[in-house]
């Protein structure tokens, strides 16, 4: 019997190694797998390249991982947000590398990586400073730049419900980057608010099919980043 459920957060992230590329779902706090990130902080892996749209807020979740010195490089589209101070300070002092990617290009690079497409052309960023170093090609009279697919050693994402096969459904705008990251991660780890029995998720509404998922861990009442930040919580 296939059952992708693992018993603990610690077990779910146990094999993340130093220098790994880790995709972390979420757009701002929506969809951020805070409990998995905190387990990764406890686990200790360092020198990570992290792919996320942002760089976290306050000193919890992704911001706490960065604050702990575990992230060598961020690949993201918008590394400043409300209550985001950890990344800007490290960036200004040259202690963390940044690869800035337009948001749609980031999403498509992740999707492409997961779909076995090594690269694609897009009009986004043509004629801007983010085009520097990229190959340009004119197709049907319009200019495009070449962008490469992105893959990860691990993807950490959050879902609303999951079943033992790893089929997933999401909650509102928490879906964002989770489905493509599930595809692009060699090992995809999901924290979910509830694990239901096989057959309870209508196959017509499954968003991420279980083939893209390796591990599921149940976190019944996940924390909300904005609440933790408002309360002044820091991790660890």
């Amino acid at each position: 019997m296939i059952n992708k459920e693992v018993a603990s957060l610690a077990e779910a992230v146990a094999d993340i190694f130093d220098g790994a590329t880790v995709m972390i779902g979420g757009f701002g706090e929506a969809g951020s797998p805070i409990e998995l990130i905190h387990a990764l902080i406890d686990q200790g892996a360092t020198g990570l390249t992290v792919v996320n749209n942002n760089t976290g807020s306050g000193e919890v979740g992704l911001a706490a991982l960065i604050k702990a010195g575990r992230v060598a490089k961020m690949i993201c589209s918008y590394p400043r947000s409300m209550n985001s101070t950890v990344f800007p300070e490290l960036y200004r002092s040259g202690e963390i590398e940044l690869e800035l990617v337009p948001q749609g290009t980031l999403a498509e690079r992740i999707r492409a990586g997961g779909a076995g497409i090594p690269a694609f052309y897009t009009a986004t960023c043509v004629g801007t400073m983010l085009e520097e170093g990229k190959e340009r090609r004119t197709i049907n009279g319009q200019d495009y730049v070449l962008e490469y697919g992105l893959k990860a050693d691990f993807s950490l994402i959050k879902s609303f419900k999951a079943d033992p096969y790893g089929n997933l459904v999401f909650n509102k705008t928490a879906r964002n980057f989770a489905p493509p990251m599930a595809m692009a991660g060699a090992v995809t780890v999901v924290q979910t608010a509830s694990i239901v029995a096989a057959g309870e998720l209508d196959p017509e509404v499954v968003v991420t099919p279980g083939i893209f998922v390796n591990r599921v861990v149940e976190v019944p009442n996940p924390a909300h980043e904005s609440v933790l930040v408002a309360e002044g919580v820091t991790y660890p």
Binding site: S77, P79, P88, R92, L100, P102, Q103, G104, T124, L130
Partner: peptide, 16 residues
């Protein structure tokens, strides 16, 4: 100098 570059979806929007 010191500005944190943050592009978000702006370049995608104007291109598409």
């Amino acid at each position: 100098p010191g500005a944190i570059p943050a592009v978000g979806g702006a370049m995608d929007l104007v291109a598409g």
